[in-house]
Nucleic acid binder design. Structure first.
Lengths: 143, 143
DNA sequence: TCTTGACTTAGAGTAATCTCTAACAAATAT
DNA sequence: ATATTTGTTAGAGATTACTCTAAGTCAAGA
């Protein structure tokens, strides 16, 4: 399949501005241009943008993503390096999942807290709700 | 317990610059100052910073975090609003977990891909490894 | 007392990532 | 044939969140 920049933008929830910006920054060196000068995206280009999104979404700056694509362009001698890069990124995602679960505990605590507060119409909770007081100690880790 | 800005910074892995910046932006209105003008942090202030970190880490901009603290200062009449804010944030975290799992699938695919590529010393993989070709279709969703 | 280190403020500077504008070309719809 | 949509470029501007500097205060240790 062939896609215009607008179609790709819609598909991935980006703006055309953003995609052109990525291109300008050297993140899309594979994208060819048609006779009129417009970018033509193939399925593999869309896949590549999905990987860019994935790396960016797990905290890799565009500069480093660019370094990865440069590795790709250097051929088979960089295969090992690329493998290691993805393994590192996997560890990073695992760490993010741990952190996200910790955030979830804090948010769940706050929801329990405000549930109780709304029910009683005030937020001096710890005196009447000993379970919440315990939870607070557990989630925030002190006292 | 009482903490100086430097102690809090160390505890939370922030810089003192960042904490002062948060204060300047109105994110720490509870923090009192001692006789010499230095900020004095109590355990509850550290908890509050942990919540700031949690909201920021799940994509809430500092401006919105500030709005939440303003709700807190308006007293019991905003308890319901605050509860709803945290419920929304919980949904957001759940969405992020889904996305993170999708990223993980893509990364795992890439690791399997480069594992195979390194083993064979080249990356024209799909012709010889039909499982990877199938995985690619599943993970990237096309063709 | 002197020095060291941690704190204060106001405000300038920086990095990353867009986001938009202007001016124009090409393709498509009526 | 004309109007609309979609594309192009170069480059300016915006946003967020720091990050650092300068100039100074204050408290504790040698």
């Amino acid at each position: 399949m062939r896609y215009s920049i607008g179609q790709v933008a819609k598909k991935l929830g980006l703006t055309t501005h953003t995609i052109r910006y990525y291109d300008k920054e050297g993140l899309l060196p594979f994208v060819r241009k048609g006779s009129s000068g417009a970018r033509v995206f193939l399925d593999e280009d869309v896949d590549w943008l999905l990987i860019v999104e994935c790396l960016k979404g797990t905290g890799m700056p565009l500069k480093e993503i660019k370094k990865y694509i440069q590795l790709c362009q250097q051929g088979d001698q960089t295969l090992q390096t690329r493998l290691e890069m993805f393994k590192k990124q996997k560890v990073k995602i695992e760490e993010q999942m741990v952190i996200l679960n910790q955030y979830m505990e804090k948010i769940n605590f706050k929801i329990a807290y405000y549930d109780d507060a709304v029910k009683h119409g005030s937020d001096n909770i710890y005196t009447r709700n000993k379970w919440l007081a315990k939870e607070r100690e557990r989630v925030f880790g002190h006292k």
